[in-house]
Nucleic acid binder design. Structure first.
Lengths: 272, 272
DNA sequence: CGGCACGTTGAGAAAATTCAACTCACGTGG
DNA sequence: CCACGTGAGTTGAATTTTCTCAACGTGCCG
């Protein structure tokens, strides 16, 4: 788990890349996005003035394992995911990595770098990604011109903050199984919002990475998944997941002791 | 620990309140703050245009136990702490509260309400507080006029995000003792920045609340503090804390087994 | 002088981690 | 084409950490 420090020499398109898997867009992948495109991607309700804004933002192709930005690198860009899957991580002094999030389509990356003018974390692609590069200064200037845009950006940050809060809550008050269950529900919801199946999908990350995100070890994550499978809540085979009982996963507080940890017989199943 | 639901009928000053403990300000407490004052409080480097902005923001006095805003309440205001200590919490469906932060002088409250136009959390005073009320719409409008201000607000949000990240890291990868140790260091730093002693201070919150913040039980927090005391790292008597070895607290990974948990003799003291 | 909330301490129980062995999928090179 | 190596995932057993339950201090307020 050492950071082998692949330099982030990310390929900015200058040739037509092989067509990606976007069903709505049968053409070759785009090289540039307008402000309107970016707003759509971010889920921002934009006004008429944004509609005709001529600014164009460049795209960037990032291959699996490559970094969009690295810790300590000077901050100047924000990044919006157009397709693909990533992880954001911080590497602590001991060299081990802590996962902060798993950004995907429509997510904004890099804003945590603003305060100290350096990125305090890094974004690593878990698959080939298509990323829109938005120079922060340019965005700030646009925010000045389009009042709705400014508020929309605040709103995205507010949303991020809420998500972090819910993560804190999850990690500090839920059992290991409940954390894994909610993680699956969360992924399911996001896939659904993106237009993919919410019940069948592939995990893009390792058990180790899930564990880091949830404050658990990889073994605990694995056992939780096996437990859910035994209970009939999911089908799981390596990275392939099928959710069979979303409601049960949403409301699960802890695993009935018969599953996963074959040690004792009957005990209370009460909430913590 | 039930929320006895004191309605948030917070007293907006209309008489001169008893002078507070602000040493730099020997006069009676202020009733209004200018934009410049608010920027100073937030640690924002403001430009010349802000200097002469005539807008005034009203203050609010909040007594111990009262709420500045409550969960579900429509969002329209941000709040900046001028003096006093608070906790921000979310109440989960089971009725138990999860502490999100312990805001104090200079902190911004309520921004997490922007996204859904309702506060998803609540802010409760742990002491008498003097709070500046900043209508969000007004602030957004000012952001349009003063370019530096807009960026400064983004920067504050970025900082919040970083803090949440470090909390996630703390909770999900540190031992109970290390979490408590870092909590003390964090408090010490904040007190110092506010001009108070960084080595001697009173905790404004219960062990229960510290535990909730750190994802621990109150007993575990109590034991950690007792352990530090035994090791000579701190002096602790109820809420009164004296830090004697800040460096040790900063770098502590886990408690040598002899302290606090008198069970076995000698084991490895290595980092996790 | 209670009553009460907060804090401390102990002992046992439960949850999660650690260590270890084994399996599985996949890619590479003989 | 298959053996082999490797990284990922699973499972078991022992150990450690943290929680739970319970008893007991302590300080404060009416």
């Amino acid at each position: 788990m050492f950071s082998t420090s692949i330099p982030a020499k990310n390929v900015v398109y200058n040739i037509t890349p092989p067509a990606s898997a976007r069903s709505a867009d049968p053409h070759a992948r785009k090289l540039w996005s307008s402000l309107k495109d970016v707003c759509k991607l971010l889920g921002i309700a934009f006004g008429a003035s944004v509609e005709h804004e001529p600014v164009q933002f460049q795209h960037m192709a990032v291959q699996t394992g490559q970094r969009v930005y690295t810790m300590g690198q000077p901050f100047d860009m924000l990044y919006v995911v157009r397709s693909g899957f990533l992880k954001t991580v911080v590497i602590d002094d001991g060299g081990s990595e802590q996962i902060l999030n798993f950004p995907m389509k429509g997510n904004l990356l890099g804003i945590d770098g603003l305060h100290n003018k350096r990125y305090p974390s890094e974004a690593v692609a878990l698959s080939t990604c298509d990323i829109v590069c938005v120079p922060f200064k340019q965005l700030a200037a646009l925010g000045q011109q389009h009042p709705g845009l400014e508020t929309a950006i605040y709103s995205i940050l507010s949303q991020e903050l809420m998500h972090e809060h819910s993560m804190l809550n999850t990690i500090s008050s839920l059992s290991a199984e409940a954390r894994v269950a909610r993680f699956l529900v969360w992924l399911s919801n996001r896939y659904m919002k993106m237009g993919y199946s919410g019940t069948q999908f592939n995990l893009r990350m390792t058990r180790q990475e899930i564990g880091s995100y949830l404050g658990l070890t990889l073994e605990t994550v694995s056992r939780a998944l096996s437990g859910f499978k035994q209970m009939g809540l999911i089908e799981v085979n390596q990275r392939a997941i099928e959710i069979k009982d979303l409601y049960a996963l949403q409301t699960l507080r802890r695993l009935p002791p018969a599953y996963g940890n074959p040690r004792r017989a009957v005990t209370k199943t009460l909430a913590r």
